Simulated assay, not measured.
Amino acid sequence: MQTDDSLAPPSDLPSDKYLAEVWRRQQQILGRVALGGDREAILSDIVRLAEEQTGDGMLASILLLSEDGVHLELGAAPSLSDEYNAAIDGMEIGEGEGSCGTAAATGRPVFVEDIAADPLWTDFRELALSHDLGACWSVPIVAGDGSILGTFANYYREPRQPSDLDRDIIEAIALTTSIAVERIRLERMRNRAEEAESLVLEELQHRVKNAFSLAQSLINLNVPAALSARDLADKVNGKLRAIASAQDLIIVRNASGRSDEMTSIRTLLATILGPLGYGDADNRISLKGEDHTVDAQSLSGLAMVFHELATNATKYGALKDAGGTVSIDWTATSEGLEIAWAESGGPSATAPEIQNFGSRLVASTIRQLGAAIDYDWRADGLRVKIILPPTSLAG
């Protein structure tokens, strides 16, 4: 095995004929990258370019560093078997983790001339030999800021030592791969930013509509018991102020001194459900469970889920009618905190034909929390079970 901290620069290339063709073909690929071509197709073409230029049985592979920075994911390796690609996809980087895992961890090229004898391949030797792979040379794909993006590897069927030309071609193609992967990442980041912006606008519109619906429902529910217009105004204004306070729990915590805030399940539910009747003399809303504390990481997400359930109960469910009730029970189990939301006395609950934005928002939040949610649509009212993982509980 050889490691090499500095490959020959382009000005020292030993073969103008081969390398001129490599650069010409790479320029074509980079043109497609600039136009926003398909990632998988571009990376596969880079691999095939490397394989064609050597013409002596080389099999190339591009692995990309995962977002967690500790695993390698398959970018392109069309000439390697699907079984082999599946086995190394998601491998953890580190010294001694084959040629690619070591190159990604150290940031240095790694040239293993004989897989059967090299200690870097101890954990992958049987896999490689079973697929007739005898040598593997891997160089890190490095971003402009020096960070590692992945690895570019050359495999051979027989043990083999790299020539100067081999090293130069690998360096040149790794550079092209770096440019392509950086552009792909930037494109992905831009798309995510646009999606996030669209999501924020849609969520804002959703919350504004919910706020108006809640206000209308509060007026309708308080009219029969109001002694006068002033009494009605006082009752509704008080509940609207409580709703404004509850909305604060739904805002994602930031680093401005509130990121370490914790709230108990009871306090969280009481804040959200207070404006809708919790604590009133008619006991339409009941809470039952020990005072478990939710960590700051889960607080705003869980608040959003409960707020969505409460809003829907007011618009369509048990809290829409004066006689309807909602009970929320929670119990600690071996799986985490099990929360049961039960509505009764209102309209018959039926599953929606299509998933609206609120439902998608709840599903997304539940996934982010690592939780689980189950809906049971019944004639006597909706039942919802949420299982919050133990890691979300602070005490």
Rank of each mutant, 00 (worst) to 15 (best):
T3G: 00
T3R: 07
D4I: 14
L7N: 03
A8Q: 03
D12A: 14
S15H: 07
D16M: 00
A20W: 01
W23K: 07
A34S: 04
R39Y: 01
D56C: 00
G57K: 00
G57I: 10
L64K: 11
L72C: 10
G75Y: 05
S79A: 14
D89H: 13
I93T: 15
G94Q: 08
E97N: 13
G101S: 12
V112E: 09
V112L: 05
R157S: 11
R160M: 14
Q161H: 12
E171Y: 08
A172E: 13
R185F: 00
E195L: 11
L199W: 12
V200S: 10
H206R: 00
R207Q: 09
F212S: 00
P224F: 03
S228C: 02
A229Y: 02
A244K: 02
Q247P: 00
V252E: 15
E261K: 06
E261P: 07
T267A: 15
T267D: 15
I272V: 12
P275L: 05
P275C: 02
D280S: 12
E290H: 11
T293F: 04
S298M: 00
G301F: 13
L302I: 10
M304W: 02
H307A: 15
N312I: 06
G317Y: 01
G317S: 09
T325M: 11
V326Q: 03
W330Q: 05
E335F: 00
G345H: 12
A349D: 14
E353V: 11
T365S: 09
A372P: 00
R378G: 00
R378C: 10
R383W: 01
T391Y: 02
S392R: 09
